[in-house]
Amino acid sequence: MTLLAGKRVLITGGSTGIGAAAAVEAARQGADVAINYATSEDRAQQVIADIQAMGRKALAVRGDVADPDTAQDFIARAVEAFGGVDVFVNNAGICPFHALLDMPVAVVERTFRVNLHGAYYMVQAAANQMVKQGHGGAIVAVSSISALVGGEFQTHYTPTKAGVHSLMQSAAIALGKHNIRCNSVLPGTILTEINREDLADLDKRRRMEARVPLGRLGEAEDLAGPIIFLASDMAQYVTGAALLVDGGAFVNLQ
């Protein structure tokens, strides 16, 4: 059984990490996949090759999600290539770790524009296309465990991820009448480009692993299944939900 057979799936930040893993899994589950990416041309083309190797259509569109025009371009290019949009996954995000007291304005502005403003414009553009098509759809946003807890060097990042989580809750209400479901996944610490430098500190990495009941940090592929589930008809009565994918870290308070 393929959970996304015949679906047209769009994913932002799809050249690396969680986005790339979700893109490849969506193709494995029968979808044609378009990815947005900002800089990683070689990796984007590798994802495209992996999708095409499974016999599915693939498209890579370069663009900075912080620019509202990127959302319109991404949706338009995907519609031109595939004929429509059935699933949209908002994944693109950044987390430049920095202390609060001397946080540069430019870092705060960039983080909000990519993570939250970018999500808003992308979700809005995808939703408008789904409404125009008239047969519903699914939107999945990659939020974070950081939407629920704090981080000393993430005071600019955690509010954006809380915002993405909240965006999905409100969008679920606004779009329910159009049969468009909106949900979020909340990853714990996942080994991706976003934290590779931070987790190069082996002592810190071991401390973080010790906090996770399942005994390890996450891999990008650990998010692919939950994203595909929420995008699929198996979750046809699930909207406004948030799924923690953190190995149990959030509940481990003692």
Rank of each mutant, 00 (worst) to 15 (best):
L4N: 09
G14R: 02
G14L: 11
G19W: 02
A21W: 03
A21Q: 04
A21T: 04
E25L: 15
A26Q: 09
A27V: 10
R28M: 09
Q29V: 03
Y37R: 01
D42H: 13
A44L: 10
A49F: 05
M54L: 15
K57M: 10
A58M: 09
L59T: 01
V61F: 03
D64H: 14
D64Q: 14
D64K: 10
D67I: 01
P68C: 11
D69G: 15
Q72F: 06
Q72G: 14
A78Q: 11
A78H: 05
G84N: 12
V87Q: 00
V87E: 01
A92Q: 04
F97K: 11
L100D: 11
L101I: 11
V105F: 08
E109D: 14
F112G: 03
R113M: 12
L116Q: 03
G118N: 07
Y120Q: 01
Y121D: 01
M122D: 05
M122K: 02
Q124G: 01
A125D: 04
A125N: 07
A125K: 07
A126E: 10
A127G: 11
N128D: 12
N128R: 15
G136S: 13
V140N: 02
S143L: 12
S144H: 12
S144P: 10
S146Q: 09
G150S: 11
G151H: 06
F153A: 13
V164H: 04
H165G: 08
L167A: 03
M168Q: 10
Q169V: 13
A171V: 08
L175H: 13
K177S: 15
K177Y: 05
I180F: 14
S184G: 09
S184M: 07
L186Y: 12
L191R: 00
I194Q: 11
R196F: 09
R196M: 12
D198Y: 14
D203W: 04
R205H: 12
R206A: 15
E209Q: 13
A210I: 05
R211F: 04
P213K: 05
P213M: 03
R216S: 01
R216P: 02
E221W: 00
L223T: 01
A224Q: 05
G225D: 09
F229D: 01
F229K: 00
F229G: 03
D233G: 02
D233Y: 04
A235P: 03
Q236H: 15
Y237E: 10
V238G: 06
A242H: 12
V245G: 00
A249C: 01
V251Y: 09
L253Y: 08
Q254S: 12
